[in-house]
Write a protein that binds this DNA or RNA. Structure first.
Lengths: 215, 215
DNA sequence: GTCTATAGTCGGATAGAC
DNA sequence: GTCTATCCGACTATAGAC
C-alpha cells in the first residue's frame, strides 16, 4: 500500500506523509501516523525535517517543482505551436495537474493534498506556495490575456480563480462525478481534462460587458 | 469580535466554533479554543453537543438549512419569472451563498467552513451533507438541463462540478483576487456573483460536441 | 543515522458539586 | 445548566545511547 522498500528513510517519510495528508489533512495527521506508515522511527522525522511544518513544505516542494515545470514547458510549446489559441494554453494548465493525479509514483494523493492546502488558508504554507510558485500563475495570466484581448485585467483574474477552483475541485474527486467502475482511471482523467478545457474556454471568452440583467 | 452577550450558551458555542473552524479547520480547532472564545466553560460543549463531531454537524445544519431554503426559493421564482433562462437559475445557486458570506450574523465565516468540508473529504461529514442537502443540487441540475437541452447528463454533471468548484474557491477568498481596500465587502461579493454567473453561463452553454482539437 | 525513553504540553471527555 | 477538578491518552520535540 505505501512505499516500504528500496527507498531512503527520507523518501519513505515524504511518501507516507503525502498519503496521510491527503486523507486526513495536515492538522489531522500526526507524525506518529506518518512514521508508523513509513516504517521508520518517530525520531527520524525530526532528524530529517526538523519540524512538522517543514515536512509539510517539503511534501509540496517535491511535487510542485515537477508540476510547475511541466506546466511551463507545455505552455511554451502551446504559445509557439498554436499562437493565439486559447485551448492549448488551458490544456497546459490543466493536463499536468491531471497527469500527476494518475501518476503511479504516488502523485495521485498529492492532488488531494493541494486541495487541502487551499482550504487550510491561514497557514504559512500559503505564503510558501505563493512565493515559490506564484510566477507560474502569472505566466498563464499573460498567455490567456494574449488569447482573449477583450478581457480586462480584473475580469481575467476573476476567471482565472474560477478555473483554478474548478480544477482543484474536479481533481480532488469532490462533487457529483464519480469514475464509472468500468472506465480506467486514465480515460476518466482525460475526459475530465477535455470537459474542463471546453468549459473554461467558453467561460473565459464570455461576453465582457458589465451587465447584471438577462443574457 | 465574537458573539458574547444576549445569546444562549449553545448559540455562543456554535458561533465561536464556526469562526474557528473557518480559520483553522476542524481538526485544527480544539474545543478549548471554542469554549474560550465563546466565554463558556469547557464542559458546556459536551453537555450541549455530546461530542466534537456532533458540534461540527450542528454548525453545518444551522447555516445549510437557511442557505438551501433560500436557494430553492430563488430557484422556484426564477423558473416562474424567467422560464428557460439560464442566468437567473445560476443566480439562484450563487447569490444565496454569497449573501450568506456577507451576512452580519457570522455567516461569512461559514462559507469558508464549507470549503473546509469539501477538503476534509473522508469524514462522516460528507455523508451527512450529501444525505441532507443532495436534493438541492439535483433540483438545480434539472433546472439547468431545462435551460440547456443540448447538454448530456454526464456533461451536465461535469459542468455542475466545475461551477461548484469555482463558487467554493471564490467564496473562500482563495486565489488571486483580493478585495481592494476601498471597495465595501458587499460590492465585492456582488461583483463576484456577477462574474461567476457570466463565466458559468458561458461554460455551461459551451459547444457539446466531443472533440479534443482546436475550437 | 537510527534507536529508546521521556519531557512537557495539550487534547477530548466526564464526574460530581452547586 | 453551569461550574471545578481531573483522568488519561496523544501529541511534538528532544536528549542521549548505540
Amino acid at each position: 500500500m505505501s512505499a516500504t522498500a528500496q527507498f531512503s528513510t527520507k523518501d519513505r517519510i515524504l511518501g507516507a506523509a503525502e498519503e496521510l495528508f491527503a486523507q486526513h489533512g495536515f492538522a489531522g495527521t500526526s507524525l506518529r501516523q506518518v512514521t508508523t506508515r513509513a516504517d521508520v522511527n518517530i525520531a527520524a522525522v525530526n532528524y530529517h525535517f526538523g519540524s512538522k511544518e517543514n515536512l509539510v513544505n517539503e511534501v509540496f516542494r517535491r511535487r510542485m517543482d515537477e508540476m510547475s515545470g511541466r506546466r511551463l514547458a507545455q505552455l511554451k510549446a502551446a504559445l509557439q505551436q498554436h499562437p493565439g489559441e486559447l485551448e492549448p494554453v488551458l490544456a497546459a494548465f490543466v493536463e499536468p495537474a491531471l497527469a500527476m493525479a494518475q501518476d503511479r509514483h504516488g502523485g495521485g494523493a498529492f492532488i488531494r493534498v493541494i486541495a487541502r492546502a487551499y482550504a487550510e488558508k491561514n497557514d504559512s504554507l500559503r505564503k510558501f506556495l505563493s512565493d515559490q510558485y506564484g510566477h507560474v500563475l502569472r505566466d498563464f495570466a499573460k498567455a490567456i490575456a494574449g488569447c482573449v484581448p477583450a478581457l480586462g485585467k480584473e475580469q481575467l483574474y476573476w476567471r482565472l480563480d474560477f478555473l483554478s477552483g474548478a480544477l482543484t475541485y474536479a481533481m480532488a474527486d469532490f462533487g457529483l462525478i464519480k469514475r464509472p467502475a468500468g472506465l480506467p482511471e486514465a480515460a476518466h482523467r482525460a475526459r475530465a481534462a477535455r470537459e474542463l478545457i471546453r468549459f473554461a474556454a467558453a467561460g473565459l471568452q464570455a461576453d465582457t460587458t458589465d451587465s447584471h440583467s438577462k443574457a
